[in-house]
Amino acid sequence: MVCLEMQCDYIGSAMTSRTLRKRLHHGDVDGKKMEHLETSESDDLNVPLLGNYSDRHAEETTLEEIWDDERRKEHLHWTLLFSQLIAQWAQWLASIVLGSGSLIGRLLTFFTSTQNGASAKLFAPPLSPLQEARLRYLRQRLQVPFDGSRMEHQDALLELWRLAYPDKELPPLQSDLWKQMGWQGSDPSTDFRGGGFISLENLIFFARQYPESFQRLLHKQDGTRAEWEYPFAVAGINISFVLAQMLDLQSAKPTTLAGIRFLELLKEDEMAFDNLYCVAFQMMDAQWLVKRASFMDFNDVMKSTTSQLERELALEDVSSVKDLPAYNLLRR
């Protein structure tokens, strides 16, 4: 990025009993404009403010400064244009010629993230029709709120109870019995504000695909637990919400490394989000035990979980959820 430093001189006019000469300096320190004002006094009122410079010389200096400024602007314009062309070329080469899965391709994709000197966002490679369809379907799921008045949503909630407690009788939709699953009150529908219906789908998927891990986390069977444990169901809703944010799924195209790597997982697995959810839930519980956390530490545990998950998604040999090291924590 081209950095320009500017210095502006201002010569004041004569005042009643003395001459003031002022020079205003502009600097850029850590991105902040700083100004410094120097003032000098002269007892001789006859000293010309421009010293020995003639008006002619002042005019030439002004014109020269104008031309210099125009040349700098033109140079900056072509520099930015050239950097954009290079970034576009690198992105094309990474995604089409070398393929986004190769190491060199990924490095070139990283290069495009520093356009115009900004550390910013990455560019996702072009998606296949299959990836686009799966991503579109996932986004549609994310937009569905939980609605306790809809029969299919009520049925899904009861299905979760059957999977969690196969030997227990189904409770009413509003009952204190729901609290033992980790809902905050007697009406689970009030806990879906952030997660939406997909968070309930995630819990059901977890219970069906990895029943042993689901039961162990539900009943807190692993490790030495805290006196104040995290509520299982509410934690599950939070994980759905945080995972969608981490993967940048609300953007037209993900611009985070984790989000771009997730698009690659969609090539192999239509249910990549749900499987990644199960990994994240198991990973969160492992972090909880390592940190000897209690209820008030939940947010810190979630931050550690997302950081670890981002690191694993960045690994070179990960092309599916099953390639993640933390996937080995899950048990069927």
Rank of each mutant, 00 (worst) to 15 (best):
M302L: 10
S175T: 04
Q184N: 08
I104W: 11
E201T: 08
E212I: 11
D44T: 13
S102N: 14
E74I: 09
A314E: 12
P48K: 13
S189N: 04
S149C: 05
D323L: 14
Y277F: 11
K33R: 05
S128L: 14
T39P: 00
L138A: 06
A252P: 01
D30E: 14
L313T: 06
T39V: 05
E310D: 08
P231N: 02
V290L: 09
E152K: 15
R72I: 05
A286L: 02
S54E: 03
I260L: 12
P145R: 06
N46P: 06
L157S: 02
T114L: 12
L130K: 07
I66F: 01
T305Q: 00
F273Q: 10
T112W: 00
T305A: 01
L108E: 08
K121M: 15
N299P: 09
S119R: 13
L324Q: 02
F123P: 07
D317L: 12
M151Y: 12
A118T: 10
Q215S: 15
L135Q: 14
F111A: 15
D222C: 02
K303L: 05
V29Y: 15
P254K: 02
L276R: 14
D167N: 10
S54V: 00
A207C: 03
I239Q: 03
S54R: 02
G196Y: 01
M1I: 11
K32G: 09
N202D: 07
R136Y: 10
E229A: 13
Q115M: 10
I66L: 00
L158N: 09
R216E: 08
F205G: 03
L107Y: 15
K267A: 10
G101W: 07
L173E: 03
K220Y: 11
Q91S: 13
E64H: 04
D167T: 14
R162C: 08
